[in-house]
Amino acid sequence: MSTINLVLHVWRQTGSDDKGSFETYQAKDVSEHSSFLEMLDQVNETLVADGTMPIAFDHDCREGICGSCGMVINGTPHGPQKATTTCQLHMRQFKDGDEVWIEPWRANAFPVVRDLVVDRGSFDRIIGAGGFVTARTGSAQDANALPIAKGIADQAMDAAACIGCGACVAACPNASAMLFTAAKAGHLNLLPQGQPEKESRTRNMVAQMEAEGFGHCTNHYECMDACPKGIDVEFIAKLNRDFVAATVTARAPLNTRAK
């Protein structure tokens, strides 16, 4: 089995008050079958042995679905492989002797907690503002009483595939959360179950997104390029349409939601 050696430049920051800086570490004898995070595990073992605090990073399922992991690798969120989360990135994508720069997501709305760990609570609050269908437990009708055209269901599923990792924000020069918000609103706005709350959902989610301090979308499409689930920017266009429609027909002024 072939192994490689790498030089890592890793962002270390003890907390939100600390300025932070890059530290250089050697990653030695890394198997090409290892994942990127397993490579970091290996480096952490050597750091602990030397009495240095291990590099903190978010991760959990390591199957590319929970959305916990995420770091900017050589300037690209989730690294060089398309449509791949950091945990699914494998070391066969790197060559012996490569230098690798590893940074946290950088956005005002994602403050650094420690090293590569950021606070993405802003995403949860956008969902809380309107990213749901009000469906009281136990009050539902029979599931097949509401046929949904396959094309619509598939499109909703395309949007619902978002794992909420935040790579779209990290990739955007404006640190905008439009792709995330559009995917989440789009999933529900497309479906018949989502129609009764469509206007309030659209307006409240957008208002919360702005209150959180995310930037505006200026159509760079870097988000789509970075998205590990391939969420399409067509959903941003859809959100813009839904937002205009909701604003025009709205009877009450837009509430700006407090953070």
Partner: peptide, 21 residues
């Protein structure tokens, strides 16, 4: 009841061309 509940929340289960689950 679970399937009914989840569909009412907008869970995008796979569907047939006729629109049924």
């Amino acid at each position: 009841n679970i399937i009914d509940q989840c569909v009412s929340q907008g869970v995008p289960f796979a569907r047939e061309y006729g629109g049924l689950l």
